Amino acid sequence: MALIAFLAANAPWAWIIAGLILLALELVVPGGYLLWLGIAGLITGLVVLFEPIAWPYQWLMFGVLALVTIVLWTRWSRNRPSQSDRPYLNRRADSFVGHEAVLEQPIAGGFGRLTLGDTIWRISGPDLPAGQRIRITGSEGAVLLVEAI
């Protein structure tokens, strides 16, 4: 009971210290969520420092701030385009879009094969004879979509 009375008497500093502890834990534990909980704790502590509020309302303020900051961060980070120095990593078929080639084998029944570099790709497009120039227009999984030039 003495600890609860001590925390109640020093509520602003308890929130500020709890926020700083959460921020320090963010350095150790990955994920990003402790950062926003720590910021919510610090803001709650600063508000309570200047305007004394009852404990239930302090917890309500902390909870609302934590939820709002986490939801805003999640929305912002999901809508942000990821930048990479290798944008086609694990999307090799997409890296061939726009390339032109000559068919070594005909496309029959809508499907054929095409050698690009060291890989033989399955291609899909209109029936075309061997020797026809084609352009790669897209991909569906590991199948390259082609059109005649």
Rank of each mutant, 00 (worst) to 15 (best):
Met1Lys: 14
Met1Gln: 15
Ala2Pro: 07
Ala8Leu: 14
Ala8Lys: 08
Ala8Gly: 05
Asn10Cys: 09
Pro12Glu: 04
Pro12Ile: 09
Ala14Trp: 13
Trp15His: 01
Trp15Thr: 02
Ile16Arg: 03
Ile16His: 06
Ile17Gln: 05
Ala18Asp: 12
Leu20Pro: 03
Leu20Phe: 06
Leu20Asp: 01
Ile21Tyr: 04
Ile21Cys: 13
Leu23Ser: 06
Leu25Ala: 15
Glu26Ala: 02
Glu26Thr: 05
Leu27Thr: 07
Leu27Val: 12
Val29Ala: 10
Val29Ser: 12
Val29Gly: 03
Val29Asn: 11
Pro30Met: 12
Gly31Arg: 01
Gly31Glu: 08
Gly31Val: 05
Gly32Glu: 09
Gly32Phe: 15
Gly32Trp: 10
Tyr33Met: 14
Tyr33Lys: 07
Leu34Pro: 03
Leu34Ser: 00
Leu35Gln: 10
Leu35Arg: 09
Leu35Lys: 07
Leu35Pro: 06
Leu35Gly: 05
Ile39Cys: 11
Ala40Lys: 02
Gly41Thr: 13
Gly41Phe: 04
Leu42Thr: 09
Ile43Glu: 04
Ile43Ser: 03
Thr44Leu: 03
Leu46Ile: 14
Val47Gln: 05
Val48Phe: 00
Val48Arg: 05
Val48His: 03
Val48Ile: 12
Glu51Phe: 11
Pro52Gln: 10
Ile53Phe: 00
Ala54Tyr: 07
Pro56Glu: 13
Gln58Glu: 11
Gln58His: 00
Phe62Leu: 13
Phe62Pro: 06
Gly63Tyr: 04
Thr69Trp: 08
Thr69Pro: 03
Thr69Val: 09
Ile70Gln: 07
Leu72Pro: 07
Trp76Cys: 00
Trp76Glu: 06
Trp76Gly: 03
Trp76Asn: 08
Ser77Phe: 00
Arg78Val: 04
Asn79Glu: 07
Arg80Asp: 00
Ser82Gly: 13
Gln83Lys: 12
Ser84Glu: 09
Arg86Gly: 05
Arg86Lys: 14
Tyr88Gly: 02
Tyr88Leu: 09
Leu89Gly: 12
Leu89Pro: 06
Arg92Trp: 04
Ala93Cys: 04
Ala93His: 02
Ala93Thr: 08
Ala93Arg: 01
Asp94Trp: 01
Asp94Ser: 13
Asp94Met: 04
Ser95Trp: 05
Phe96Lys: 05
Phe96Thr: 01
Phe96Ala: 00
Val97Ser: 05
His99Ile: 09
His99Cys: 11
Glu100Phe: 08
Glu100Met: 14
Glu100Thr: 15
Glu100Asp: 13
Val102Arg: 15
Leu103Cys: 01
Glu104Cys: 01
Glu104Tyr: 07
Glu104His: 11
Pro106Phe: 11
Ile107Glu: 00
Gly109Tyr: 07
Gly109Lys: 10
Gly110Glu: 10
Phe111Gln: 14
Gly112Pro: 08
Arg113Lys: 13
Arg113Met: 03
Arg113Ser: 06
Arg113Gln: 14
Leu114Met: 10
Leu114Val: 02
Thr115Leu: 12
Thr115Phe: 12
Gly117Met: 12
Asp118Met: 11
Thr119Glu: 14
Thr119Cys: 07
Ile120Lys: 09
Ile120Arg: 14
Trp121Arg: 05
Arg122Ile: 09
Ile123Phe: 01
Ile123Val: 15
Ser124His: 06
Pro126Cys: 07
Leu128Glu: 08
Leu128Lys: 12
Pro129Val: 02
Ala130Trp: 15
Ala130Met: 08
Arg133Asp: 15
Arg135His: 06
Ile136Gln: 02
Glu140Gln: 13
Gly141His: 10
Gly141Asn: 13
Val143Gly: 04
Leu144Cys: 01
Glu147Phe: 06
